[in-house]
Amino acid sequence: MEMNKDELISLYRQMLLIRTFEDKSAEMYAKAKIAGFLHLYNGQEAIAVGALSALHSDDELVTHYRDHGYALARGIDSRFVMAELYGRETGTTGGRGGSMHIASVEKHFWGGYAIVGGHLPLAVGLAYANVHHNTGRIVLCVLGDGSTNIGTFHAALNWAQLWHLPVIFLVENNMWAMGTAISIHSSVIEIYKKAAAHEMYAERVDGKDVLAVHDAVCKLAERARSGEGPSLLEAVTYRYRGHSMADSDVQRSKEEINEQKQRDPLTMYLTNVLLKRNLLTDEQESQIHHEVEAEVDEAVAFADASAEPALDTLYDKIYAQPVANMQIDGSLIRPAALYTGNGTHG
């Protein structure tokens, strides 16, 4: 898909927004505004931005827990994402899910999922639903290299291929699964080759090259849309930070990380494409920087100003359809009759 100048600039802006957002999140984590697991996306920005720019805005998106980049690239308001990291009522899931479970079903982002491989069958089912309802929408399912060894990976690929469903499995191969290097965790280093076990079409792309990712996903989306079935795309990349903010990252060498930073997706795109083709001036570039920083500052201010979810909403939405005599007493779901009878309970 040819992109015009504005679209090309927008790719850069989105990547910069993600990087700035992630750096700010790390800062807020250090300040204990954010807790638990926080998996940052620094270094991998070109994949989310390249992939989503190749899809329709109503194509279905399902990702793993490293999901902020996808949320922002899908156009979810950065204030709501930051508020979710804070666990506030204005967050994308009202403080229920946190960092690993950002979602906006309205924008066809069905969420980040935190059980390795657990979301792959869901993506296949979602693809089925779209075929069943003849919507023409396809599904992008994002996972890491470490998620290609678990049973659901193979079960999902087999099923998707067997039923010929419109889903793209996008593997972000950042060479590490938590603290385990790919050579230690996988018998196959070139991950895309695993698709061959299911006779699924697969490709490998430079995950640091946003335009290459964009082109690859365009092609695979076209395949899926025209009824040629599922595919797998391996995007080779690297993450700059530890697995999560809880990771001391002693297992990776400084040399390895520094070497990877020599091929930075943002810098490469800025210098080799935008500046080289005179699509952007230095002034415009610093203007974008200012805007992005202001947006992220605003997101933090918004999260800081937002309230925690109200305690009396604790039991909300456990069931979509509560049954007739289900009532809450603070610790258990009990029949309503309990409260009208003359039991010994207070």
């Binding site: 279905e60 069905w110 657990g118 792959l120 069958p121 869901l122 993506a123 296949v124 089912g125 979602l126 693809a127 089925y128 639903a129 779209n130 069943h132 309802h133 049973g151 659901t152 079960a155 999902a156 087999n158 099923w159």
Partner: peptide, 16 residues
Amino acid sequence: EEAIVGVGIGAAMGGV
């Protein structure tokens, strides 16, 4: 089984 239930969940999310 992980796929029978999981694909079912995905389909249910999508309105099947």
